[in-house]
Simulated assay, not measured.
Amino acid sequence: MNVGIVAAGPVHDIPDLKKVNHIDYWIGVDEGANVLYESGIQADLLTGDFDSIEPNRLESIKQNTKAINQFSSIKDETDLELAFLEAIKLKPTTVYIYGATGGRLDHAWVNVQLLTMFAEKHLDAWMVNSQNEMTVKYPGKYELNKDLSYPYISFLPLSEVVNGLTLQGFRYTLEDQDINQGSSLTISNEWSEKKGTYFFNSGILLVIKSRD
């Protein structure tokens, strides 16, 4: 099952969801519920406090939804974190998160860090905006098919250091290299083969596919 999560980020930073045809289960998060509604997509689940949606519009959205988890605006978790917990329960194949970047930097940065929730469960999850797809990985070996939509790929430490990073099938290869947080060594790589492989021994790695 592929799960799509639509958060409350700026609409201009969200790809055209009408063209997204690989999602089996949609979750709308707060204002993201309105984005799904405007895209003509029926949400399988809405979650959040919905304090940013006008009441009459919210009622129309709810009538076009299969299930709703509505919370108080006073809570410890963000609406997106609660949506991530719901997605994890579904044991998905892949999760795609839209509307989680752009706008406020504090929200965008914590949302990237929240990707560790999926990495800890060894679930594949990608945060998507109009120019990038990003994921977080814990130590292991991974393969990525060449993506013509995103010609550049970067491997950045989310932890203080990523130990033993090896890159194969990319234009700039590495062999058992330690990468410290703040280093630009692994920015803007490219695929040299149809499939690239990367693996590392310890740390937390942020992988970003990008286009200009």
Results as ranks from 00 to 15, higher is better:
Pro151Gly: 03
Ser159Asp: 11
Asn69Gln: 14
Asn64Gln: 06
Glu175Ala: 08
Ile23Tyr: 02
Asp30Arg: 10
Asn21Glu: 15
Val20Glu: 13
Phe155Glu: 08
Ile14Gln: 07
Tyr25Thr: 05
Leu105Phe: 14
Asp176Ala: 10
Trp109Lys: 14
Thr186Asn: 13
Tyr172Trp: 07
Val20His: 08
Lys91His: 11
Thr94Val: 11
Val29Pro: 05
Gly103Lys: 15
Ala7Glu: 04
Lys141Cys: 14
Gly48Ser: 12
Asn111Ile: 05
Asp76Gly: 11
Leu36Glu: 14
Glu133Pro: 05
Lys19Leu: 05
Ser39Val: 12
Val110Asp: 01
Leu45Gln: 03
Thr78Lys: 05
Asn111Asp: 04
Ser159Gln: 07
Ile97His: 00
Thr101Arg: 04
Gly182Trp: 01
Lys66Gly: 02
Val207His: 02
Asp49Pro: 09
Gly40Cys: 15
Trp26Pro: 06
Thr47Met: 09
Ser39Trp: 04
Ala83Cys: 05
Pro92Cys: 04
Ile153Ala: 08
Thr65Glu: 13
Val136Ser: 02
Ser184Asp: 12
Val136Gly: 03
Gly164Lys: 10
Glu160Cys: 00
Lys19His: 05
Thr94Gly: 01
His22Thr: 04
Ile97Lys: 02
Asp124Pro: 01
Val6Pro: 14
Ile53Met: 13
Gln113Arg: 07
Gly32Tyr: 10
Glu59Met: 09
Lys146Ala: 15
Ile5Lys: 05
Asn111Arg: 07
Leu158Phe: 02
Asn132Pro: 03
Met134Val: 08
His107Asn: 03
Gly196Ala: 04
Leu205Lys: 02
Ser130His: 13
Leu82Gly: 05
Asp176Lys: 12
Met1Gly: 00
Trp109Cys: 11
Val128Phe: 02
Asp51Gln: 06
Asp13Ala: 15
Asp51Val: 11
Ala43Ser: 15
Thr135Tyr: 00
Arg57Phe: 09
Ala108Gly: 06
Arg104Ser: 15
Leu45Asn: 00
Lys75Met: 11
Ser149Met: 09
Gly48Arg: 12
Ile53Phe: 15
Leu165Met: 09
Asp24Pro: 01
Val110Pro: 00
Ile208Gly: 09
Val112Gly: 02
Gly182Ala: 03
Leu85Ile: 05
Ala7Phe: 02
Ser159Asn: 09
Lys121Glu: 10
Leu148Cys: 02
Met134Ile: 05
Ile61Trp: 14
Leu46Gly: 14
Lys91Asn: 08
Thr65Met: 11
Thr135Lys: 02
Asn21Ala: 13
Glu54Gly: 13
Asp79Ala: 11
